[in-house]
Deep mutational scan, measured.
Amino acid sequence: CHSECLGNCSQPDDPTKCVACRNFYLDGRCVETCPPPYYHFQDWRCVNFSFCQDLHHKCKNSRRQGCHQYVIHNNKCIPECPSGYTMNSSNLLCTPCLGPCPKVCHLLEGEKTIDSVTSAQELRGCTVINGSLIINIRGGNNLAAELEANLGLIEEISGYLKIRRSYALVSLSFFRKLRLIRGETLEIGNYSFYALDNQNLRQLWDWSKHNLTITQGKLFFHYNPKLCLSEIHKMEEVSGTKGRQERNDIALKTNGDQASCENELLKFSYIRTSFDKILLRWEPYWPPDFRDLLGFMLFYKEAPYQNVTEFDGQDACGSNSWTVVDIDPPLRSNDPKSQNHPGWLMRGLKPWTQYAIFVKTLVTFSDERRTYGAKSDIIYVQTDATNPSVPLDPISVSNSSSQIILKWKPPSDPNGNITHYLVFWERQAEDSELFELDYCLKGLKLPSRTWSPPFESEDSQKHNQSEYEDSAGECCSCPKTDSQILKELEESSFRKTFEDYLHNVVFVPRKT
């Protein structure tokens, strides 16, 4: 048989008469490798580009789960590009990614509803959504962080984005990388972005840091009482949809009607710091009717980097990364020049730590249904340095008659930039024990000054392991946590139920 035959053949030295091919099969003959313009397919066939392209389009058009959109890589027609490569849609070739590779997620039936953290986790790592997304989240724990972890990498949506009755959302900033909504599939009414009845939605994105392009379709905003109209108009300008909307697409009466839409800028007039305090004062603000001013709200939190936005980490279910302080308005003076500047002394802060701070007014709604208010920009203030805590785990070892090696770990709280350490030492008198000992005694162990690591005695271990207080009263049991108490109650309830079950099964009433 021919060298490319495997198993047997019907005619000697003829690659077209093989029972099976050793390498690849091409047009009725066995070959060692697939010549151009053919590609290896499933490690035994040679196919042309049209064959591989037909497989790709067949799966793409069917949208069946589990099928493969075949691509070409290293002269092979394979189910998908290997790690580190992405497909070129024009020629199906796998090309190296520039940075992290995109991950295209194809949605069944063309859309997916995100109504819980669990459903959001199914899209973790996706960068391109081939379909439409509907966000409908009523509640949950730590929602802002969970949504950002699972949806934060999405850069492109081919269909539309719909935010509907998501009472738990305060902001859409968890879509931190969303840059493009194509609108290839539109919501009824030709809408590519749809926001309806979101009672706590206050911000779409921080438009000073976020760009969003909507290729096709219109915007729809109705019944978002805490979303200011200025935020919607800003989205029109940034996304390129200005002029597409009709009169009733953006409701003037049901958007922002319960919001404090600040239209003035508060400026800080005085800032002073110490290692654990920050004193702030800002310019006074009074609405047209000074009785509408209820006070100020001061927001602050630790910020290692200057990239904080107002609604980071917030949701309507209680999660809030900001510390909020309510401040009463100052006494009002008739003389504008003698107006008191409101302020606040922030206490209990960490030394040498940068804080993000902003302040906003708290006002009631005027009778004319106009909203007044003022808010400052987010500023960054760093507390002063102070003395560091003591170095940890000092170790001293003498390696000769004239040297001592000293080692330690950095302090747990540096409280500033540590530039150097101060080492103090003092000579001590020799131990009298060394002169009084009889060095001729056998088995004498000389006193040693070398360091030995501390260890816990058996008594201390027994005390720590004991669940009861000892007789001397030195140790006591740790208080039980809520989960331990709940577990004990469940076990007790189970024992009672099981005992009742045994009584009912074992003891049967005697027939009379």
Rank of each mutant, 00 (worst) to 15 (best):
A195Q: 06
G295T: 05
L172I: 15
D206T: 07
A356K: 02
E156Q: 08
A316F: 13
L169S: 07
P330K: 14
V390T: 12
E264A: 04
L265A: 09
L186G: 08
S171A: 06
T254G: 08
T185N: 09
R244G: 14
K360P: 00
Y380T: 14
D393H: 15
W322A: 03
N255T: 06
N198A: 04
P329F: 08
A195F: 11
I271L: 08
N224S: 03
Q121G: 10
S208N: 12
S376P: 01
N340P: 08
T241C: 02
G125A: 13
E283P: 07
P330R: 15
K350W: 15
I134V: 12
M235L: 13
G343I: 04
S396P: 02
N190R: 04
L169E: 03
E231S: 12
G131W: 00
C261Y: 02
P288V: 06
Y300G: 02
L212K: 01
S173N: 10
D292P: 01
S132Y: 02
A149P: 08
P388E: 00
N263D: 03
L279Q: 04
H341K: 10
L212R: 00
E187Y: 05
V381Q: 08
Y167L: 03
G140R: 06
K409C: 15
L279F: 15
S376M: 04
A374T: 02
Y305P: 08
K277Y: 15
R244E: 11
D326N: 03
P351R: 07
H106G: 12
A259N: 07
Q339R: 10
Q354G: 08
T113E: 12
D328L: 10
L172R: 00
C317W: 04
S132V: 02
F221P: 00
K162P: 00
V363N: 12
E246L: 06
G240Q: 15
K242R: 14
D115M: 03
N130W: 03
L178V: 08
K242D: 14
L252G: 10
F221S: 09
L196I: 13
D206H: 05
S402Y: 05
A374L: 05
K103L: 09
G373Y: 04
G343A: 09
A144G: 06
Q203G: 08
T254I: 14
A168M: 07
F220V: 13
K177L: 07
C126L: 00
H106L: 10
G295Q: 12
D384P: 09
L280R: 00
I232F: 11
D377K: 12
I357H: 01
L201P: 00
N255Q: 05
P411L: 00
N340R: 03
K162H: 11
E262M: 10
G313T: 10
D292H: 03
S260W: 05
E111A: 15
Q258T: 12
F275A: 03
R272W: 05
G295K: 07
E109A: 14
S319C: 07
K209I: 10
I379T: 10
S319A: 14
V238R: 09
V308R: 07
G373C: 03
T118A: 02
T323L: 12
C126I: 02
L153K: 13
S274T: 09
Y194K: 11
E122F: 03
P287L: 06
A374H: 05
F299Y: 15
I232N: 00
F268C: 11
I114M: 11
L280H: 00
C126T: 02
P351N: 04
A120G: 08
D289T: 01
K407P: 00
D377W: 09
P304F: 08
K267Q: 10
T254L: 10
E155T: 08
F311C: 01
I114Q: 00
Q203L: 13
G131E: 01
P288R: 12
K409Q: 04
L331H: 11
N136K: 04
A195N: 11
E122R: 15
C228P: 02
E264G: 06
A149R: 13
G373V: 04
V397M: 14
S171F: 14
C126A: 02
S158P: 00
L331N: 11
H341A: 13
I157R: 00
L227Q: 04
L298N: 00
G140S: 07
R272L: 14
A149F: 09
L227D: 00
L362P: 01
G189E: 12
L153M: 08
I154M: 13
Y167F: 09
F311P: 04
D312T: 10
C126E: 00
Q245E: 13
E187I: 07
R332M: 07
Y191M: 13
R244Y: 05
N136W: 10
S119Y: 11
I137S: 04
C317D: 01
F221Y: 15
P284E: 12
F290P: 05
E237N: 10
P288S: 07
C228V: 02
R291W: 01
L204A: 08
K253L: 11
R247C: 04
K253F: 13
I188E: 05
F193C: 11
R369S: 05
V363S: 04
Q216I: 04
C228M: 08
R370V: 06
K267S: 13
I214L: 13
D292N: 04
D393K: 07
L196V: 14
F365V: 08
D377R: 13
Q403L: 12
G159K: 02
D206P: 08
Q339C: 07
Q354V: 06
I271Q: 15
Y160V: 05
I188P: 10
K301I: 08
T273Y: 13
T353M: 02
N399G: 14
Q354N: 08
P287W: 02
G131F: 03
H233F: 07
E187N: 04
S376F: 00
L227V: 06
N255A: 07
D257H: 08
Q245F: 11
K103H: 08
Q199N: 13
I278G: 00
Y223W: 12
S321K: 10
G139L: 05
E302Y: 10
P336Q: 11
D292C: 06
E184D: 09
V324M: 10
S173G: 09
L153N: 07
Q339T: 07
Y223L: 10
M235S: 05
A120C: 14
S269H: 14
L362Q: 01
L204R: 00
H233I: 09
L219P: 09
A149H: 11
K350D: 15
S398G: 05
I278K: 00
L212W: 11
S166T: 08
C105E: 00
D315T: 13
L147Q: 01
S173W: 12
L133R: 00
K301E: 06
P394K: 04
R291C: 01
R369P: 06
L266M: 06
T118Q: 01
K242V: 14
E283S: 09
L153Y: 05
N320P: 08
V104E: 06
V381T: 15
N142C: 01
S319Y: 09
L362R: 15
L147V: 02
G256Y: 06
M297V: 12
Y167C: 02
L293N: 03
P342L: 14
F193G: 01
Y167S: 03
D312S: 13
E283N: 14
T113V: 05
F175V: 09
N248Q: 07
R176V: 12
V390L: 14
K409N: 14
I357G: 04
I278Q: 00
T254E: 04
E246A: 04
P330W: 10
V397Y: 14
W344I: 15
D206L: 10
V325L: 15
L266C: 05
D377S: 12
E246N: 15
